[in-house]
């Protein structure tokens, strides 16, 4: 293609991004790749050590632990928050009166910045004076449902991670709004046809609504996989050093510590690249798998 006036203008208009992409993304990404093969602190020059960082990582228990924690978080937080978001969207989509109010209420938590959120959650889940355990106690005292144990949320290594998972279901506002918009795009004609067949609301949900929503779900799930793998601020503030027993030590925290506590920038870069690859692979397969599903059911 010849360079027309328009293509000149086009490149010129795209120039800010071309610069931004090269300087703030591509160059650091490549430099991290190079650094990952070196022993390097910012204060001393990088020394090439081949794949030693990667070998060391494979033998590093904390690396595996932090990776495991991160996977645990993603495996529970992504589906749970997706289900909660879709559930809320379905409830709101019933065109109930006052829908806008409910929507606002459900959305508000998503506005809370990460730092105050972390501070607030420490307070809510305090094992001794937390309002969550108080709520459980009230339920137990009145013998509603069944006796629920009062976990020591922040101090017990088997539950501490779940506090963050619960947090992820509290902040589903964005996803909820997206699903709600998606639901409103489902053609009414489909429901009318189903009504003629006498389909139940549940059947309609599973046979029409969710399949029609599946492209939106796919996009959102992929985005939340990417963000959940990077979780940093909340655990960094809530659980210094990943306490208890590193059960809340996430991958990003280890990268940060390796780089800026241990001054082991090469090691941190190697970890960063592994994270990039994991996200890349997950996204790739998620797309591939869901693309199939999406097309199949939507047709």
């Amino acid at each position: 293609m010849k360079f027309t006036n328009q293509s000149k203008a086009g490149l010129l208009f795209a120039l800010p991004w071309l610069i931004g992409f090269s300087v703030f993304l591509l160059y650091p990404l490549l430099r991290a790749f190079y650094n990952s093969f070196t022993e390097y602190t910012v204060l001393t020059p990088a020394v090439w050590i081949g794949t030693e960082n990667y070998h060391a990582l494979m033998k590093d228990k904390v690396f595996w632990q932090s990776l495991g924690n991160t996977f645990y978080y993603a495996i529970f937080a992504v589906p749970l928050s997706t289900i909660v978001a879709i559930g809320l969207a379905l409830l709101l989509n019933t065109k109930v009166k006052g829908q806008a109010f409910y929507r606002t209420f459900f959305f508000l938590p998503a506005l809370v910045p990460a730092v105050p959120m972390a501070i607030l959650w420490l307070w809510l889940f305090n094992g001794e004076k937390g309002i969550v355990n108080y709520g459980i106690q009230v339920l137990n005292d009145h013998n509603w449902l069944f006796q629920v144990p009062k976990p020591n949320w922040l101090g017990d290594k088997t539950v501490a991670k779940n506090v963050l998972v619960i947090m992820s279901t509290w902040t589903v506002g964005h996803a909820m709004v997206i699903y709600l918009a998606g639901l409103q795009q489902v053609p009414l004609a489909l429901y009318e046809a189903a009504d003629l067949d006498g389909a139940s609301p549940i059947r309609k949900t599973f046979k029409i609504t969710l399949p029609m929503l599946s492209p939106v779900i796919m996009f959102n799930v992929i985005m939340s996989i990417i963000t959940s793998f990077q979780i940093f601020t909340q655990p960094y503030i809530m659980f210094p050093g990943g306490a208890p027993e590193r059960s809340t030590y996430f991958y990003s925290m280890y990268i940060y510590d390796a780089a800026f506590r241990d001054n082991n920038m090469g090691y941190a870069s190697a970890m960063g690249w592994i994270m990039f690859l994991i996200i890349f692979i997950l996204t790739f397969f998620a797309r591939k798998y869901m693309d199939k599903k999406v097309h199949y059911e939507a047709n």
Binding site: N126, G127, E128, K129, N152, L154, G155, D156
Partner: peptide, 9 residues
């Protein structure tokens, strides 16, 4: 667990 929740108070 008891000691931990004592300490969290």
């Amino acid at each position: 667990a008891t000691v931990q929740s004592f300490q969290q108070g």
